[in-house]
Computed example of a mutant assay.
Amino acid sequence: MSTTETPRSIPTALPGFTVRVATPAEWARVTEWANREGWNHGFSDAACFLATDPHGFFLGYLGDRPVAAVSLVNHNDGYAVWGHYLVDPGFRAQGYGRATCRVARKHAGDRILASDAMPGQVTNYTRSGLVRAHDTVHYTGLPRPSGDAAAGVVPYEPAWLDAVTDYDRLSFPDGRPAFLAHWLAAEGHRTFLRVTDGVLTGYGVLRPAPLRWRIGPLVADTEQDGEALFAALTTGLGPDEEVSLFVPERQGWFAAARGLTEEFRVVRMYTAAVPEGRAERVYAIGSLELG
């Protein structure tokens, strides 16, 4: 699979509009934009995202002013994920977002692309070659206790990284070792494993964010494994501390059973068929931006 190296700043067909690969300092502005829109990025999200693929984050500038953003992160040689599609409200409907996407698209080469579309944008995404796969639902609320958090649940340690990476590959469309290496042990993240007879049967991550705690990924062999991990992740939260998670629609019952309610939904789309794997074991994805 190929990746086209993107110059630091390149012109577009729009007068005065250029696109560049963002530095971490520049991308901090995008995190601010996103959180003003209510996206509730975790405090360590940006550091983990950029470490996964430093060349996959793009800012569109009108003169010296950043007005558009998109990320296209290459997880490996075969799979990439669109995210962070944002345009400054005062500059929307002028083509700046599309121009930024056209530059970013080259970065992924011929990899399979994934993206999450708001329901009203599905037709536009379809015109760009993406095919609808399923809905992903955002659930929020005060978590209801579930199961026995102590039974077979242990805190994550780096010695488990390879095992978690291999386990995750069974339910994710492709491998994402770089992402997991940063995500599992990021500052503020609480990661737990479910281990049965010495075998990994699930893992989950809780992270702090401005509006409420976020859970994801949460992947488990069985509902009981998922319950035990959910209990471990939420034990210790205050009585008024909410959580949120993005759940594939088919697993929405799990979030509802934990006392959470649907807030909104997006549509997961791909440019080509992806392996289903053990999708039924995904109780929460890591993030919309990186899957």
Rank of each mutant, 00 (worst) to 15 (best):
S2T: 12
S2I: 12
T3V: 11
T3E: 13
I10S: 12
A13I: 12
G16R: 12
R20S: 14
A22S: 13
E26P: 06
E26H: 08
W27Y: 14
E37R: 13
E37F: 08
E37Y: 08
G38Q: 08
G38A: 09
S44C: 09
G60R: 00
Y61R: 10
S71K: 08
S71H: 08
S71T: 11
V73S: 11
H75Q: 11
N76W: 09
R98W: 02
K106M: 10
A114N: 04
A117V: 03
P119L: 09
T123M: 02
S128L: 15
G129E: 12
L130K: 00
V131G: 15
H138C: 11
P143A: 05
D148T: 04
A150V: 03
A150G: 11
V153G: 01
V154M: 10
F172P: 06
D174M: 05
P177S: 15
T191I: 09
D197Q: 13
R207W: 03
L211I: 04
L211H: 04
T222R: 09
Q224M: 06
A228F: 01
E241Q: 15
E241K: 10
F246L: 13
P248I: 02
E249L: 04
G252D: 03
F254H: 03
A255G: 06
A257Y: 01
R258A: 10
M269D: 02
G291C: 01
